[in-house]
Design a protein around this nucleic acid. Structure first.
Lengths: 203, 203
DNA sequence: TAACATAGAATGAGCGTTCAATCTAGAACA
DNA sequence: TGTTCTAGATTGAACGCTCATTCTATGTTA
C-alpha cells in the first residue's frame, strides 16, 4: 500500500488545471453569461476536452460556485488592508474610487448581477453566495465598527450592520445603474456617493 | 360557444392575446428566469400552442423587451402621483416603505437583476432598458427637482441628476442585498435608508 | 369567398453529461 | 540499467434531451 498518499507532484498539477478552467470559465461567463456559455466553449478556452472538465468540477454549477468563492478572497484582502491601516477611515475613503470604478466596469458588471439573480433561484448557487456574503460582510462590519468607535460612537451591532448593509447596497446598486444608464455622470455620482459613505462612517 | 368569459370586445382581441402571453411569460420568468423558461412552458401557461406565440412576438427577446416597457408604466404612475401631491417630499417618504418592500420581494428580485444583467450583454434588451430608464429617470428627476426647489435649494441639473442616481442605486442595491443576505435586518436597514433619502432630498 | 387565428408536428442545432478507450509518466522490479 | 506495471490524465464520440423557431394544415369569422 502506498501510505504516502496522493503523489506530491499531483497536487500542484491538479490545482493548476482547476485554475485554468476557472480562468477560462470566468472569461466565458463575463462575455456571454452563465447560461450563454457552454461547457464546450469553456473547454475550448481552457485548452482541454469537454469531458475532462468533469474531472475537476462536478457540474457547471460547481464552476460558478468556485468563482464566487474565489471572488470574495480579493474583497477580504481589501478590508483586511483597511483595518490594518493607520487611519482606517481615510483608507476606506481612498479605496472607494477604485472600488467603484471596478464595480462599474462594463465587462464585469453583468456577471456580478447575474450571479445574484441566479442565487435567487438556484439553491446551490444561493448556498455559495450566502456563505461568501456572510464572510465578507463580517469583515466589512468589523472594519466599519472600528472606524465608528475611533470616531467616538457607541453603536450597537444592529446599527453597524445596518450601515454596512446600506454601503454595500450602494456599491451593488451602482453596478446596476452603470448598465441601465451608461451615460451616467460618474464624477457627480461619485462625489455624492463619497459624501454619503463619509456620513455613514463618521456622523 | 360564444360565451367567452374574459374578452367580450372584438377589436382588441389581438391585444388581449398579447397581454395573455405577457402575463404568462412574466410568471414563468419570475419563477425560472429568462433562460430557464422555454417558449413551450410559456405557451402552456398562456393556454396556447408554442408556435402561436410567434404570431404576436418576433422572438423570445421581444417578450422580455415588452415586459420591460410594461414595468415602467407602473413606476411612472408612482412618480406622477408624488409630483401631484400636496407635499411631494412627504409623499415620497411615505411611498418608500412600500417601494422597498416590493423591490425586496423574493419572488420578484431575481428577474429585476437578471434583466439588467441581460441588458449588459444583449443589445436588444439593452435598447429597451435604456429607453425605459431614460423615461423613468426623467420623471424621477422632475419630482426630486421639485422637492429640492420647494426646500429652497438651487441646484444645477447635474446635482439633481446625481442625487436621483444615488437614490435609484440604493433601491436597486437593496434588491441585490435581499438576495445575498436573506436574513437582513429590514427594520434597521430601512431606517438608515430613509434617513439618507431625506438628507438627499432636503439637506 | 378571403383573411386571419390557431394547433401541432417537424427541424436542426446545441445542450450538459457520461463513458469506454487511449495516453503518459513515474514506480517497481529484474 | 532497461522493462514492465499501473494509476491518473485526457480524449472525443455518443446519449438523450430540450430548445427556439418554422411550416403546414385546419378552424373560425365576417
Amino acid at each position: 500500500m502506498s501510505a504516502d498518499s496522493a503523489t506530491p507532484a499531483d497536487q500542484p498539477r491538479a490545482e493548476a488545471r482547476r485554475a485554468q478552467i476557472l480562468a477560462a470559465a470566468s472569461d466565458c461567463f463575463h462575455a456571454h453569461g452563465f447560461h450563454g456559455s457552454s461547457i464546450s466553449q469553456i473547454s475550448k478556452a481552457a485548452g482541454m476536452s469537454a469531458g475532462h472538465i468533469y474531472h475537476y468540477f462536478e457540474n457547471k454549477e460547481a464552476i460558478i460556485a468556485a468563482i464566487v468563492e474565489q471572488d470574495i478572497e480579493r474583497l477580504q484582502e481589501m478590508t483586511d488592508d483597511m483595518r490594518a491601516a493607520e487611519n482606517p477611515l481615510e483608507a476606506m475613503m481612498e479605496s472607494i474610487d477604485a472600488a467603484v470604478a471596478e464595480h462599474m466596469q462594463p465587462d464585469h458588471a453583468p456577471l456580478k448581477l447575474e450571479i445574484v439573480a441566479e442565487a435567487g433561484r438556484n439553491p446551490h448557487i444561493a448556498a455559495a453566495v450566502h456563505a461568501a456574503d456572510a464572510k465578507i460582510m463580517g469583515a466589512f462590519e468589523e472594519t466599519i465598527g472600528l472606524i465608528r468607535r475611533a470616531g467616538g460612537h457607541q453603536d450597537d451591532s444592529r446599527e453597524i450592520r445596518g450601515r454596512t448593509e446600506i454601503i454595500s447596497a450602494l456599491f451593488e446598486g451602482l453596478i446596476a445603474r452603470s448598465i441601465r444608464n451608461p451615460a451616467i455622470d460618474k464624477e457627480t455620482t461619485l462625489r455624492i456617493f463619497r459624501q454619503i459613505v463619509r456620513d455613514l462612517l463618521q456622523r
